Simulated assay, not measured.
Amino acid sequence: MTDAAALLSDLVAIPSVCRTPNGGIVALVRDHLARHGVEAAVLPGPEGDRANLFATIGPRDVPGIVLSGHLDVVPAGEGWTGDPFALRRMGDRLVGRGAVDMKGFVACMLALVPEMVAAPLRRPIHLALSYDEEVGCVGVRHMIARLPELCATPLGCIVGEPSEMRPVLRHKGKVAGRLTVRGRAGHSSRPDLADNAVHLAADIVGLVRATHERFLREGPFHPLFEPASSTLQVGVIAGGTGVNVVPDTCRVEWEARAVPGTDPMTVHDALQAGIADLVAPLQAAGRAVAVESEILSLYPALDLADDAPLRGLAEAWSGHAALGAVSYGTEAGLFQAAGIPSIICGPGRIAEAHRPDESIGLADLEACCAMLRRVIADQA
């Protein structure tokens, strides 16, 4: 466990916050692999200052197993009792930003590289590390698009998000967006001469709430999830400059979570149609209103069949029975959409993620390394 904990310390020490350059942490991983004779492909994204990393141990021309993780973390924020980017031990736990989400899994992957290299692998093990997962699974899309030139189509993918080492078969898909509502400013004493953007935004919020309530009543439903339907909610609303000014702009940010079998974009499209129905009669009456829309994040649901071979393999490797569904989202749905059977299985508890004093147990790292050793043995 010393190697995994030391590697985790090195990873946490690089504050690879989402939407920021990640050259430092990519170089750390690349150099670690090079020391063990493993060549890594660094795959820059279109942003120009961020990159994915993909490496293969074993033969490239036969199907193998992908071990997938992301290198970015959410901002540290307030409430920490120590430096969030200096890993420290508290009892049997290691505390630091990204310790559980998900540099702990990455550290275990890297700690097992010498054993992967030493094993007589008949099937390859691929290490796939992405950027900006935390803001909508951004980087992994570019890496998945490059896979055909990097390796044979994999047999399966393990996404090591924290699941207490229980394989997870399903999660909801997601789409999130921003609406910029435009109106016409004016003095509050003559609102009849202006067009209040906040009022129109409030009507849109009502539409979001009504659509969400319709999902709860009418479905479609998936019994393994809580709630069992797709959901829709507004998370941010901001507009106006003063109580005596009719506001001409209001921003609304919303999010939908869609059960497997429902394309998240169908929720987006239904919302857009409802907004168009609100705006069209106002514009026809000569009101100076408009709504601009942009998508902030989008990823599909994960839906691995109960009888999928990867389920049985993951249960054997982890030593735990599979869990039907979780409420959080991952990159696994994108691998699945690319034709690669995917499952979630990683160390630690999701409840530790995104909070002050985020931590992972030493026993969690040990259990993850034990699982990875079984993966290695199965590929030899």
Rank of each mutant, 00 (worst) to 15 (best):
L271Y: 12
T241H: 06
H171M: 10
R251L: 06
P281Y: 02
A202S: 15
G235A: 13
I237D: 01
L179Y: 00
W254R: 11
L271N: 02
G286R: 10
I295Y: 11
L200S: 08
I295D: 01
L232N: 03
F215K: 13
A201P: 02
L278K: 01
D277K: 12
S189C: 15
D269R: 10
S230Y: 06
H222L: 11
A290M: 08
V289T: 07
V234C: 09
A228S: 10
G186F: 00
P191L: 10
A284M: 13
T241A: 04
H187E: 01
H212G: 14
P223M: 00
N244H: 12
P223N: 03
H199Y: 09
A238K: 04
A202R: 06
L224G: 09
G173T: 02
F215T: 13
N244M: 03
R287Q: 05
H199N: 11
V236N: 10
K172T: 10
G177S: 04
A194D: 08
P220F: 06
Q283I: 06
V205C: 04
R182I: 11
A238P: 06
P264K: 14
E253S: 02
Q233K: 15
Q272W: 02
H212N: 15
L200V: 07
V208T: 14
K172F: 03
A280R: 09
D277R: 15
E294Q: 15
F221C: 01
P223T: 05
V243C: 02
V245K: 05
T266Y: 10
S188G: 11
G219I: 04
G177C: 02
D203E: 15
A197E: 08
N244G: 10
R178G: 07
V181L: 12
P247N: 07
L278Q: 05
H171K: 05
R178I: 13
G239M: 08
V267P: 01
P191V: 02
Q233I: 11
N196T: 10
R209F: 00
G239I: 10
H171D: 12
R209H: 11
W254V: 03
L216H: 05
G219N: 04
T231E: 06
L216M: 14
D269L: 14
R257I: 07
H199S: 00
V267Y: 06
S189L: 05
A238M: 07
L282V: 06
D192S: 07
V234P: 15
I275E: 07
R251V: 12
V243Q: 04
E292T: 01
E255R: 12
T241G: 06
A176Q: 07
S297N: 10
A202M: 00
A197M: 11
E218Y: 15
T231W: 05
A210G: 01
D192G: 09
V252E: 05
G239A: 05
A228V: 11
A197N: 01
R190Y: 09
R217G: 14
E292I: 09
Q233Y: 14
S189H: 08
K172V: 11
A288W: 03
E292V: 12
F215D: 15
L296V: 13
L224W: 02
T180Q: 09
D203I: 07
D263C: 05
D269M: 04
T249H: 01
F215H: 13
D192A: 02
A258R: 09
P220Y: 15
L216W: 09
C250G: 00
H199Q: 04
A197L: 06
L232V: 13
K172G: 06
G261K: 12
D195V: 07
Q233R: 13
V234M: 11
M265C: 10
P281V: 07
L271E: 13
L193S: 01
P191H: 02
D195L: 07
